[in-house]
Design a protein around this nucleic acid. Structure first.
Lengths: 414, 414
DNA sequence: CAGTGTTTTTTCGAGGCTCGAAAAAATAGG
DNA sequence: CCTATTTTTTCGAGCCTCGAAAAAACACTG
């Protein structure tokens, strides 16, 4: 349950905080870190001396910042790229990509591969993942011992502990404990993350101004996914990655969803649903296995040209998303939204109906003030998110080690 | 942003933890506290010596626990009832109640009053609240200086900081900063809490076995409200108390809701909605201002007797609640549910349709394993929740004081 | 009823951590 | 070259927690 703070936790946490301040960027000086953390200069000085001696941080070149002030110039601290390495593995429909990233966040190597994920056996899928990781680890340019963490990202549902994929639309296989498998194979700590959660993580690092403590990342792709950051923390379900926005119910008993149920938001707003409606196939039509991005772009172009069934299909998608967001906003209050994925490029077709629907809901009071941003390409976001996830793990668990995670400290509901 | 841990925070947090362990009950001995907190016996000994010297804790009578073991008997620690006092003020439809509670959680005085909240002016409403508090404070049996905190509970939406009521169904008035008003009036720290959140808090204290880290409390009353505990913490919106389960959209464009919008869960499951359907008044009929508990009990009795419109009304309520819960479970995964309020007594009429609906949703996979509990009386729960909220505030902020809440310490999304 | 064993609680010195103040370092301006 | 200014480091003081050992409080035994 609730657990005390031991004396050794103190240094550990403050170390993690200094590293975090440096990772957040801007080559902060010791003085700046002291200011933002509220700790004394002496403490920051001591901690950063340690971290530099251990090769985790480096002192930047002085005079780097340009403008010269009167006194002793600040010396910026940066992450030592050689301090460690992490790997990201992103598994999406028919596509596997891996990247090696240095401690400062720069990609140092990558590899991509086309697969037929929908028909592959369990063993083949696992085999491809371990094989691609092994190839990267065998790269002579890479010091294997420096690889401190592997983060996998996958479309689908993962468990809360980020160990296993529970279900995924990209494969009929279920319950694959990828994290455990990779750990056993390579002896490197690994996690299995949900794609949309990683999108949210990446957005937060990319644009901390806009995506700070509360925001929503929605993936508009074949399926509909969501990553949610609330009060500065990634929101997950109690047992799974959660946030299955696409499977909130839009119309009870409505259109057939890929998940086999009826009336989910996705059954109106997923690519296959927009496709189905645009082709006027009827709501009971079995969802198409895949609609290519090119097909979707053509569809959007047609919809923009004339007011036919294509435009109506996007309208219906907007309506479903709007009512879904409205229900979500009833629970969490409105927040900035990032629309990601190929259909985000067609957001102009979606937005009017979406806003109209939101206006009919509890979030509607501030309907106009809700801001949307679009980002058509989800894969780079997922990879960035995985990278940051892996790197912050190294920051916190390896470079600021201590008593193992004493979860729940100080938690108290009342 | 993220903030370091100062040396003085250490003792403060560990003090709070010892107090928390004692409040959680069972008259724990120092040894037991040391075990559950992971701190050393020496530390616990030192801290509890302080707390006893300060009159916050008391040593229980030895031999109290009955069964005698071999060595030196454990001496249980308890809360000193005289250490402080808190007040709870619960404002609900046409009803105002206040209670004075000692530090150990026992009610030492109370007072209740009928009001006509729906027609009262802003000033009158505020006046009644301050007046009833003043009367209790002027009670000669009460040492005013001991009153350390006032917690108000109100049906409706409050702000995240628990300072103000933003909107409430019990009054046409909006945006009343009750917490600030009471603080200014009496110089005692106060908070303004959402009723359903307090229900959840109370349930957690009442039955920590069942209501531990993840559960849902749903108020089935004139309106539909929700209190949500996720990962051990009370869930609130980004700006408001949030969790407006009753205003998730069940059927876009559907039945008229008390909030003026259409198709909300509440427009099918609130007392007025059940009433409207039972009387076959049509979904556009303006919601009745109030339906008495007695009327609802009669309705439920009729519904149990024969399969008429009354039974159908409860069925529709169950369906709306089920689909709503299904959407909620898509976001947070299934969790135990407590149904509270007068219509919880008619849960037998609601449950079949509710379970059937959930089975059609993403949460449906575990439809049968979702467990429901009922509690017809919400007011005692709300008061208990307010009491615990106020008491834990005293525990943490007054008896374990230190640097003022350095929020966000260590929060990191990636 | 005194001695022994057992368990809880307190005491005490050691080791760590952060802090404030002062010193040292590094630079611009005159 | 000297002074003002700002950053960074050094150093002693003050807490806090810890482990080990001592003290306390009881049950059991013969």
């Amino acid at each position: 349950m609730s657990v005390g703070i031991r004396h050794d936790d103190l240094r550990r946490r403050n170390r993690a905080m200094v590293i975090g301040a440096v990772r957040r960027g801007g080559q902060p000086s010791r003085t700046e870190i002291a200011a933002t953390t509220g700790l004394s200069h002496s403490t920051i000085s001591a901690i950063s001396a340690d971290l530099i001696a251990e090769g985790i941080l480096t002192e930047g070149k002085p005079n780097e910042a340009g403008l010269l002030k009167r006194g002793r110039p600040q010396v910026g601290l940066g992450l030592n790229p050689k301090a460690a390495t992490v790997m990201t593995v992103v598994l999406s429909l028919n596509f596997l990509s891996v990247a090696v990233i240095d401690y400062a966040g720069q990609v140092v190597a990558e590899e991509q591969r086309r697969l037929d994920t929908l028909t592959m056996s369990r063993e083949a899928l696992i085999g491809e993942c371990t094989a691609i990781v092994r190839r990267r680890l065998e790269d002579p340019d890479l010091d294997v011992r420096s690889v401190a963490r592997i983060a996998l990202g996958i479309q689908g549902i993962t468990d809360t502990k980020a160990r296993a994929m529970l279900w995924s639309p990209i494969t009929p296989q279920t319950d694959i404990a990828f994290a455990d498998i990779l750990e056993a194979e390579f002896g490197i700590p690994a996690t299995m993350e949900n794609d949309c959660n990683m999108m949210a993580v990446a957005l937060r690092w990319r644009d901390p101004e806009r995506y700070r403590d509360d925001f929503i990342a929605i993936l508009l792709s074949h399926g509909i996914g969501m990553g949610l950051v609330l009060k500065g923390e990634l929101f997950t379900g109690t047992h799974s990655s959660g946030g299955e926005f696409g499977h909130m119910i839009h119309r009870p008993g409505g259109a057939l969803c890929r998940c086999g149920r009826r009336g989910c938001v996705e059954a109106y707003a997923g690519n296959y649903a927009i496709w189905r409606n645009a082709r006027q196939l009827g709501e009971d039509t079995e969802p198409a296995a895949d609609v290519s991005d090119a097909q979707m772009r053509t569809l959007a172009a047609t919809a923009r040209e004339n007011d036919g069934p294509e435009r109506e299909a996007y309208r219906k998608a907007g309506e479903a998303l709007g009512y879904g967001l409205g229900s979500l906003f009833a629970l969490i209050d409105p927040a900035p939204v990032a629309m990601v994925g190929v259909s985000a490029a067609a957001f102009d077709l979606i937005e009017p109906a979406l806003r109209e629907a939101i206006a009919q809901t509890a979030g509607g009071q501030h309907s106009k003030s809700i801001s949307f941003d679009t980002e058509p390409n989800e894969l780079p976001l997922i990879r960035e998110g995985c990278a940051m996830r892996a790197l912050t793990f190294v920051d916190q668990e390896i470079f600021a080690p201590g008593v193992q995670a004493r979860a729940g400290a100080g938690k108290n509901v009342a």
